[in-house]
């Protein structure tokens, strides 16, 4: 199969890559671009560990072909912090011990940010529904919910001040 050339923007930087027509965006990110923050837990869109943003939409990158990213803007976990300043979600996950093994954490952070971008003040129920597509095996989900809510509150506060 002939490789396809794809031009994208990843975390704000222009990125070009070659990929096979049947290659997933996750494989491209991990194996061709060295962005190993997104994980493959299932390869079938069940676990959410590979969550990334594609043109502002939360997707499982294991279910997206690399070729579909042509012209797209992609955001991954590697772009969440600004330099050495952690995103409030990242900080809240550490402060609230919302991670243990951490392999699901990048996906959950990307997914949580996607929710807070559209709803800065979600109910616990809305949050749990939203994160239902991200499986965590270690921590249980309560700390994750608490961390996201704490980050949301902090982000709302920052927004109000601004």
């Amino acid at each position: 199969m002939k490789s396809l050339q794809v031009s994208t923007t990843i975390n704000g930087d222009a990125a070009e890559f070659l990929c096979a027509p049947d290659e997933t965006l996750l494989d491209v990110l991990r194996n061709r671009l060295g962005l190993t923050g997104a994980k493959e837990g299932c390869g079938t869109g069940d676990c959410g560990a590979c969550s990334v943003m594609l043109n502002g939409r939360l997707v499982c990158s294991c279910l997206v072909l690399g070729a579909e990213a042509e012209g797209a803007e992609i955001a991954t976990i590697e772009g969440l912090a600004e330099g050495d300043v952690l995103h409030p979600l990242q900080q809240a996950f550490i402060d609230h011990a919302a991670l243990q093994c951490g392999v699901c954490t990048p996906g959950i952070l990307v997914a949580a940010k996607a929710l807070l971008d559209r709803d800065p003040d979600p109910s616990d129920e809305a949050l749990r529904y939203w994160l239902a597509g991200n499986l965590c095996r270690c921590t249980g989900y309560d700390k994750i919910i608490a961390a996201v809510q704490a980050a949301a509150a902090e982000m709302r506060g920052a927004r109000d001040v601004a």
Partner: peptide
């Protein structure tokens, strides 16, 4: 936790 920052930034190196 000492592994926290690496795990929330995607920098932690797992098996794959």
């Amino acid at each position: 936790r000492p592994d926290g920052v690496d795990k929330v930034t995607g920098r932690a190196m797992y098996g794959a």
